[in-house]
Amino acid sequence: MSTVSDTTHEGAVAVSTPPAPSAGDGLSAAELAAKYGLSVSGARPSLPEYVRQLWGRRHFIVAYSVARLSAQYTKARLGQIWNVMTPLLNAAVYYLIFGVLLQTNHGIDNFIAYLVTGVFVFNFTQSTVLAGTRAISDNLGLIRALHFPRAALPISVTLIQLQQLLYSMIVLVAIVLMTGEVPQFSWFLLIPTLVLQSVFNIGVALYVARLGSKVTDLAQLMPFLLRTWMYVSGVFYAIDKVVKHLPSAVGVLLDLNPAAVYIDLIRFALIDSFTSAQLPHHVWIAAVAWAVVAGIGGFVFFWKAEEQYGRG
């Protein structure tokens, strides 16, 4: 049988059954590759190597997420102002419904600040998870055209939402000040809390990105799951007031819910009347544990399918 390499010089050969590739000295493809030091294309790198590659792409990740966010409002006349206007209008709607129409406060002091904090902080996790589900399937074009560690996509999704949250924080701080809170030392707790929540969100985004790349129906289901999660996270009410009527195991679960943990920590930081007595027990341990477990677990889970993402 004439080998492929020979045909280049001796004349074309119509190939009906593909010949085994060889350099003319009877080596199999794998042996030939080994002889000349060729590696398998598209193979998954080791975990440390993967982390190294990802770190090498940090400028791309940041540039990509900043670009995605600023591309969002370029066609609107007010442009980037919408980054602040959107959360502001959101807060206005909640104020209108709960503050003016219903005049309810569920027995919570400064209910508007309490509510808006919950909505904004939960929205960070919610939008990240929702966008993370589509991070792979919406970017198949990019994945099939360029080389980069695919974890860059769910991470940049989180960074986009983090920037949104920082704009929301400006609105939130303004509302908190208007409702009579005074800036104090505890406000600095915002920083570690947001860092922990971001790590947690990155982990969850990585996790659902892999699931969503295989099970595309997940993008349709996710809004329902997320809404359920919102209702159990104490966004509109105080969990400690509800759990009195519930079995204690349920109360523990509600307290350990990562979304509730991060929301309560932000409330504790910003709202003076929200005292440490209202925080669940061991809340900082829970906050750190969720970030570490989700962050590392999500990263490893995502990395394990790294070579599969182009398939769609």
Partner: peptide, 10 residues
């Protein structure tokens, strides 16, 4: 071409 580039898993 995409498979050679390692962008599409075989």
């Amino acid at each position: 071409l995409r498979a050679i580039a390692g962008l599409l898993p075989p």
